[in-house]
Nucleic acid binder design. Structure first.
Lengths: 129, 129
DNA sequence: ATAAGGCCTCCAGTAGCTGGAAGGTCAAGG
DNA sequence: CCTTGACCTTCCAGCTACTGGAGGCCTTAT
């Protein structure tokens, strides 16, 4: 398979696949013409990466998860710790965003949104203290 | 005021304040010794920026909001549009994160997290199709 | 022969800072 | 007067995870 094929089949852009090779997540073979030649196993790894990234894992998390995935002697505790830490970061992020959402919703609702200059949003942002 | 003072009073790191000057959000005067000299108005702008950033507005949003803030002839509709667009992006982001949270919670709950290699998390990431 | 499309590498840019090096300035203490 | 330490300055590099584009080679079809 050439890069375009694995791009189609993994859902990852070719650019991203080259990037993943550059940072050592995958190591496809090369044809004589210099083209990357992907085996099924490479495609499988890329699909794994695509799913892990879709769940918001960082690249370094993905690297660790991939290593565990390929290690038959892994302890599931190691996997779980990575996932739980990540879940906690996500929950913290959601909490942050919800706080923003609450404030912004209030402000947007309070703003007339017409041609007049009076605006509760700017008043709030510019308040003293 | 020197940069340390406005850093303390605005809650922004000095580094960030220098960065905001570099990208044209503020333009403090300079003393003869080359030190930035901040007026109350600069501090007020920085506080405005700190609050806008805390609400998640992008720097470019902040630039636009600051311009509107200082324009007496603004229409509140312009402010509201920026805020509403931003709110929508936040809501979309929350939805994304909640989807991740749901999946991750399931997976984490399903994983024994012991010394054995069997792991539903990796099984999910590595599933075919 | 040529045109289209796929592949290659390398460079630069994105957002919003943050860290660090190398050096000038200023006020207090001995 | 000198030193020490806390400021301040600029400039450069790096972070995440790609993404876009230039310039050029390879392959396939007409």
């Amino acid at each position: 398979m050439n890069i375009g094929d694995v791009a189609d089949r993994s859902g990852l852009p070719a650019k991203t696949i080259r990037y993943y090779e550059e940072i050592g997540l995958i190591s496809p073979d090369r044809d004589d013409n210099g083209y990357r030649r992907f085996a099924e196993q490479d495609l499988h790894k890329l699909a794994f990466l695509a799913r892990a990234r879709a769940l918001g894992f960082t690249i370094e998390d993905c690297r660790a998860l991939l290593a565990l995935y390929e290690d038959d002697t892994r302890a599931s505790a190691d996997v779980k710790r990575i996932a739980r830490d990540h879940l906690q970061r996500i929950e913290a992020k959601i909490a942050d965003l919800r706080a923003m959402q609450d404030t912004l919703t209030e402000l947007v609702d309070a703003c007339a949104g017409d041609a007049r200059p009076d605006c509760p949003i700017l008043r709030d942002l510019g308040r003293e203290g």
